[in-house]
Design a protein around this nucleic acid. Structure first.
Lengths: 246, 246
DNA sequence: GATCTCGATTGATCTGGGTCAAAGTTTCTG
DNA sequence: CAGAAACTTTGACCCAGATCAATCGAGATC
C-alpha cells in the first residue's frame, strides 16, 4: 500500500473510497471533494495531530494504523480510539483537536481542507447525516469501551481487545471467517496497555496465560491465531457481539 | 418543576427550550416540532429505555436525572452517561437503543415521535448539524471519561466526578460561582461507584477522606460544598478544564 | 414509639494487578 | 558479525481497592 500520488487519484478510485464520507456522493460532489483533497504520509511514531492544536483538515486513513490518546501532566496516558484504514479523522465544526493522534505504523492519510469541506457539508445534507451516523458509531464504541475499562478484569480486557481487532479485521477481508482466523497485532504491548488501562507487564502476562490456556496461538510476538472465536468472546465476558473501534 | 400539560405548552416556552434541538429553529419549525411532541413522566427508579428495545421517540430531559448504563450478564454494571435537564436522548437514524436509560429521580421528558422528527431533520439541515455538534460533545465527554476510568486513582475519580457535577451545575445557574459553591449530589454512593468503576465502599471511604482533608464539606449525605474549586481540580489530576457529561 | 428498609459508614482481611528488577528476543546498524 | 536499541517475558514483592461483615442513621410504615 504505497501512497498514491495526488494528481493520479480521484476520490472515486481512492483505495479506500472514504467509507465515511463518499459512500453516497454523486459525481459532482466527488469532483468537489477531489478538488480539496491531498495525500500525506506519516512515519511510524510520528504525531499527526497534537491535542489542542488547530486542525485545518479532516480526512480518512488510507493505510496504516493510528491511535487517539489522552495524556495527564504526569505522563499517564490512555488510548481513547484506534484508527484503522477507512476511519475518519476530524471534527467538522470544531477548531481544536481534542486528543493526540499518533501514527503507530506508517500512515497515509487522504485529507480534505477543512473550510471547503465544511462548506460542502452545508450544501450536501447527506454528508452531514453520514457524519452523524459515524459519530454515533464512535460514541457507541467509546461507551462500550467504558464498560471494558471500568468493570472488566485484565484477562477479560485482553480478550475484549483481541476480539474487537479480530472482528474488525474479519469485516475488512472478503470472507468473514469466524474460526481459525489470524491477524497481525498492530500494537505493541505498551500500546495495548494504554488502550486497556493496564501496565505492559500485565498485558504480557495475560497474553501468555491466554496462550497457555489455548484461547489464542502466537507465532512470534505479533501474529495471533484465534482457534475458537466463541471461546474468545466468552473470555471477554461478552455474549453479545457489540463493540466497534472508535 | 411540575410537568407542564401538553396542551398548554409550545416548544418555544418549554421550560428547557430543548437546548439541543431548538436553539436555531424558526417559528415554522418550532410549530412542526410542537405538533409531534408530548410529555411523559417517569418515577424514580423506573426504566425509560431498555438496551436493545426499539425506540420510537427522541427527546430532551425537562427535569430530573437519568443515567445511561451498560450491564454484563453477571450483573457488573458501568454507567456510561448522566442525563441532566436539557440533555438530549435518542439516536436519530437508529432503531434500537444501545444502553439502559433509567430515571434516578422523577424525570419529565419532552419527547418527539421519531419518524416525523427524522423527517424534519432531513428537511432542516441545521438540526442535523446541531445534533452532530451535540454528539461530538458526548463523544468528547465519553473519551474524557475513558481517561478517568483507565488511569485515575479512586480519590482522583471521585474528585473528577464532583468537579464535573459542580461545573455542570454552575453553568446552569445564572451566576457561575467558582468558589464556595454547593449542590445536591444527584447520585447514591452505588450510582457513583457504577459511574467510576469502583465499589460503593471505596466511594464512601474516599468521600470521607476528601471531607477530612477539607477538599469538600458535607451536610447530611447529599449536600456538597466545594470551598476551593482549584483544589478540587488538582485532586482530580486535572489542570485543564475539559470534561462534560454525556 | 417500635420496627423495617434502604442507604451510608467503618473495620478487617484478601487479592489482582502495579512496581521494581533482571533476562531474553528481535531487529537494526555499523 | 558484534553491539546496540527496542520490545517482550518472567520473577518477587507490595499496595490500592475489592470483598465480607457489622453498625449506624433517616425516613417510611404500622
Amino acid at each position: 500500500m504505497n501512497a498514491p500520488t495526488i494528481s493520479a487519484v480521484t476520490c472515486g478510485d481512492c483505495p479506500i473510497r472514504h467509507r465515511a464520507v463518499c459512500a453516497r456522493c454523486d459525481t459532482d460532489e466527488l469532483n468537489e471533494l477531489d478538488a480539496i483533497k491531498y495525500y500525506r504520509t506519516y512515519e511510524a511514531g510520528q504525531p499527526i495531530i497534537w491535542s489542542g492544536d488547530v486542525m485545518n483538515f479532516v480526512g480518512s486513513v488510507v493505510s496504516g494504523i493510528a491511535t487517539l490518546t489522552q495524556t495527564m501532566e504526569d505522563g499517564r496516558t490512555q488510548m481513547v480510539g484506534l484508527l484503522l484504514p477507512s476511519d475518519f479523522v476530524g471534527r467538522p465544526g470544531r477548531d481544536g483537536a481534542a486528543y493526540n493522534v499518533v501514527a503507530t505504523t506508517e500512515v497515509v492519510m487522504c485529507c480534505f481542507r477543512k473550510k471547503p469541506f465544511e462548506d460542502l457539508m452545508v450544501r450536501t445534507p447527506h454528508i452531514a447525516h453520514r457524519l452523524l451516523e459515524m459519530t454515533l458509531d464512535e460514541l457507541d464504541a467509546a461507551r462500550e469501551w467504558m464498560l471494558v475499562l471500568g468493570r472488566k478484569t485484565a484477562r477479560e480486557k485482553i480478550a475484549s481487545l483481541l476480539s474487537i481487532i479480530a472482528r474488525r479485521d474479519a469485516s475488512l477481508t472478503p470472507k468473514g471467517a469466524t474460526n481459525n482466523m489470524s491477524f497481525d497485532l498492530p500494537l505493541t504491548r505498551e500500546a495495548m496497555a494504554d488502550y486497556l488501562g493496564l501496565t505492559l507487564e500485565t498485558v504480557s502476562r495475560q497474553m501468555s496465560a491466554l496462550k497457555k490456556d489455548g484461547v489464542i496461538e502466537l507465532e512470534g510476538k505479533r501474529r495471533v491465531t484465534i482457534p475458537d472465536m466463541g471461546r474468545l468472546m466468552e473470555e471477554a465476558g461478552d455474549d453479545s457481539d457489540g463493540g466497534l473501534i472508535g
